[in-house]
Design a protein around this nucleic acid. Structure first.
Lengths: 227, 227
DNA sequence: CCGTGTGAACGCTTTCACAGCG
DNA sequence: CGCTGTGAAAGCGTTCACACGG
């Protein structure tokens, strides 16, 4: 349990979700020529508390030096390795509407270990078009390819999303990013992450609403007393 | 503490984040003409466990009928009210690149309580253009407007995002949705939610990586028993 | 009877505080 | 001495299981 990559299986989900943030912070520090960083400084860059950062990094192994800090390059490599970013991953975007278009052109994907390799749509009027340097293909053409660790991005209308997910799963895809505002049912072992813009705004609306109620004590200031 | 909106202040963040999902599920049921639903059925539609759904709804009050279930219309109204969706909220999108463009045209915003009212960019070549029926304005023009409960959406490059956030905060905006891949520092009381596409993909890559390691028992096959 | 509402148990996440090492 | 790494404690969130009421 000292230096080896021991805790392989045991990295908590909450920690995994923060590793990309640390990676970005480290990239920024590396670009500035910083070569050693303390947990305090890195935590500041990443917007978390230093104790949380140290606990997170401790799941990867002991890559820091006591009394000194972390080697920026080394830590960056270790996190990238843990995330599986040594080699690039292929991404297929399904649904070439507004959002799919924008995602295909989004440079942020390419910069960090991901290559948009396939653009897919069902509409015959769209198939064959060239978007961001790629030719849009049909789902059948995609299914003919051998998907070695392919990540699927669903950018279709919600009505089509479940069918698309089913086809992706059948093809052997087990990592899906869903932009369609709906719940997807997939078998065990398939990882789904969702990005729902309307949901995010509604969550903000809740806080906005409450900020307003706090400001205007119109209908019942019901002050917080105890519990 | 029985039927009144008692637990106003005490709704957990995790619950708030799920209310939009319930709302969408209820909208779907209402569209199908369903007028009563059990926690079991609604949970199924929302992709959660029924116990979690009931606990979540209990924070809003007692809007169910024991032995029967929930009135779809009533519950939908109560959740919408709690989220502050009785009236529409104005949304300003800052940054008219690929993503900003797509967001401006995205119909998912308009459908539920949000109206994209302002499109903002710094580039003089873009200001004045019409996108999705709206004229792109400069930040100065936006700052001249009185922002009544405005929600800001940052779709700029990460280098500009902090400056944009600062200006929004100065204008009195306290709800921000950030698409730029960077950490934003804002004062207490300002709510930030982030959507980071590269981060989501990296989290998926982690699971993909591990699924692969599980499949190829190169360095330790440790199989999962049953459940 | 049936399904909601909810205390209580459980498990995960964060924070604290400090031992241990360079 | 300074900062990492980490047990222990505190705080949240989820699940369980059942009392309660229509």
């Amino acid at each position: 349990m000292t230096a080896a990559p021991a805790a392989r299986r045991g990295i908590p989900g909450a920690t995994v979700a923060r590793l990309p943030v640390y990676l970005r912070a480290l990239a920024g520090l590396a670009a500035k020529g910083v070569d050693t960083v303390s947990s305090e400084e890195l935590a500041e860059s990443a917007g978390v508390r230093s104790a949380k950062l140290r606990k997170d990094l401790s799941y990867l192994g002991s890559y820091g030096v006591r009394g000194v800090g972390y080697d920026v390059v080394r830590l960056r490599e270790e996190i990238a390795r843990e995330l599986g970013l040594q080699h690039d991953w292929s991404v297929a975007i399904i649904g070439m509407g507004n959002l799919g278009h924008a995602l295909a052109a989004y440079s942020g994907f390419a910069t960090r270990g991901f290559r948009v390799t396939w653009l897919v749509d069902e509409d015959p009027a769209i198939v064959g078009q060239t978007i961001a340097g790629l030719t849009v293909i049909s789902f059948d053409e995609l299914a003919a390819e051998p998907p070695g660790g392919l990540i699927g991005v669903i950018a279709t209308p919600p009505t089509a999303a479940q069918a698309v997910a089913d086809r992706l799963v059948t093809m052997g895809v087990h990592s899906i990013l869903n932009f369609a505002p709906c719940v997807l049912n997939v078998p065990e072992g398939v990882e789904i992450r969702k990005v729902d813009l309307a949901t995010e705004l509604q969550i903000l609306a809740f806080h906005e609403q409450h900020a307003r109620e706090d400001a205007d004590p119109i209908d019942g200031g019901l002050q917080e007393a105890t519990s």
